[in-house]
Amino acid sequence: MSAGFSAIVLAGRRDGRLDPLAANAGVSHKCLVPVAGKPMLLHVLEALDASPGITRIVVSIDAPDVIAPLIRRLGSGRISVEPSAPNLVDSVFGAANASAPPFLVTTADNVNLTPASVAEILAAAQGADAAAAFARRERVVAAHPDGQRRFYRFRCGDYSNCNAYVLGSREALKAAEVFRGGGQFAKFPMRIVKAFGLLNLIRFRYGLATLDGAFRGFSRRFGLAIRPIRVSDGALAIDVDNERTLHIAETILGERGSALGEPPQEVRLDRAAHRLGDPLLA
């Protein structure tokens, strides 16, 4: 892998549907929903833009114009926008065609991403064709006791995925095909059969393999060196999927701001003030 990574941020609407969080906030896209006082996408872009290992950032979204004011506000010359596809896999392919490997792929709702976590992931991915970030249950619970309710069970412990993936080359993009059905394997175990095979489904269901052992099986299936990355920050496994996790993310971000000696952000703002016409996005 080279020293510089291209970050791909998936921010589009799935199948063109309005997300319930977006509807509640009065915005067109989930990535514009305010979290701790600013659009969730901005949290992710700020973390990536502050990461020395990231040389380019590509945001994949179905309506590029809606985030143009946000990109201008950030004022970074490293961010570009590409139209997304109706599904995750083709969106990744499209963004990858507009940038260069290696790639760090994440999502617009990964608001607890930090430059430190990005550096940890990129360093741990060196030498792998592809990698996926995981956090141990204990670290997730330490970040917030109600932050995550679904975990993958392995012989070495319980883990949650962190919506952060590394693809070391264009050839490794074929590993992204496992998400064509939508991912979310903890919610939909039969997707593992299609993506990884029946044996891996049994191993996942009954916790028969270690995390490393499971990924050795994935490596054999895809003919790639695919590696799990254990992140130290359990908050990375807590993305914003609903009102519950939105409030949890705001709590975590507020606590971290206070720990850094910064004034806590007002997290109970009137959300109507964050509509697309608000000066916040101008």
Results as ranks from 00 to 15, higher is better:
Glu138Gln: 09
Asn242Phe: 06
Gly182Tyr: 12
Ala124Gln: 08
Arg137Glu: 02
Ala50Asn: 10
Ala175Glu: 04
Asn24Asp: 14
Phe218Ile: 15
Val231Thr: 08
Leu48His: 05
Ala142Met: 05
Gly37Val: 12
Ile61Leu: 02
Arg220Asn: 13
Pro279Thr: 06
Ile71Trp: 06
Arg170Cys: 04
Phe222Asp: 13
Pro64Arg: 10
Val27Gly: 10
Pro189Tyr: 13
Val141Ile: 15
Ile202Lys: 09
Ser169Gly: 11
Val267Thr: 15
Asn200Met: 15
Tyr165Thr: 14
Asp270Gln: 04
Arg139Gln: 13
Asn242His: 11
Leu70Glu: 11
Leu269Cys: 09
Ser28Cys: 01
Leu236Asn: 07
Asp270Pro: 07
Val33Met: 08
Arg220Leu: 15
Ala95His: 01
Asn200Ile: 07
His247Gln: 12
Val92Lys: 06
Gly234Phe: 09
Gly183Asp: 03
Arg230Met: 07
Glu120Thr: 12
Gly181His: 04
Ala128Asn: 05
Ala259Gly: 01
Ala100Thr: 03
Asn24Met: 10
Arg56Phe: 00
Arg180His: 11
Ala133Lys: 00
Asp241His: 14
Pro228Thr: 00
Arg230Gly: 03
Asp109Ala: 09
Ala131Ile: 10
Arg275Pro: 00
Leu48Cys: 06
Leu18Asn: 06
Leu198Ser: 08
Gly234Trp: 07
Cys31Pro: 07
Phe196Glu: 12
Arg137Tyr: 02
Ile57Phe: 04
Leu199Val: 15
Gly213Trp: 07
Arg78Phe: 04
Arg203Leu: 13
Asp146Thr: 06
Arg78Ser: 15
Gly16Trp: 10
Ala133Arg: 00
Val44Tyr: 11
Thr107Ser: 09
Ile229Ala: 13
His43Ile: 02
Leu246Ser: 10
Asp49Phe: 03
Ala209Glu: 11
Val111Leu: 08
Ala195Trp: 08
Ser219Cys: 03
Leu21Ile: 05
Leu70Val: 08
Tyr165Trp: 15
Asn97Pro: 00
Asn24Pro: 00
Val59Cys: 14
Gly168Ala: 03
Gly77Cys: 05
Asn200Pro: 05
Arg205Thr: 15
Ala68Thr: 10
Phe5Cys: 00
Leu276Phe: 02
Ile238Ala: 00
Phe204Trp: 13
Ala125Leu: 05
Pro145Ile: 01
His29Leu: 01
Gly127Ile: 03
Glu243Asn: 05
Leu45Asn: 13
Pro86Tyr: 01
Arg275Lys: 04
Ala85Glu: 14
Ala282Ser: 13
Arg78Trp: 03
Arg13Gly: 01
Ala142Val: 00
Pro86Trp: 01
Arg203Val: 07
Arg230Asp: 14
Gly75Ser: 10
Ala108Asp: 10
His247Ile: 02
Arg56Asp: 04
Ala116Phe: 04
Ile54Gly: 06
Ala175Asn: 04
Ser91Val: 05
Asp233Arg: 14
Leu10Ile: 13
Ala63Lys: 06
Ala172Asp: 06
Phe151His: 02
Gly16Met: 11
Cys31His: 07
Asp239Gly: 10
Glu82Ala: 15
Asp15His: 10
Arg136Ile: 04
Ser76Glu: 12
Glu138Ile: 02
Ala63Gly: 00
Leu167Phe: 15
Thr107Leu: 09
Arg149Val: 09
Arg244Leu: 12
Ala123Gln: 04
Val240Tyr: 06
Leu167Thr: 03
Phe204Ile: 06
Ala100Cys: 02
Ile54Phe: 03
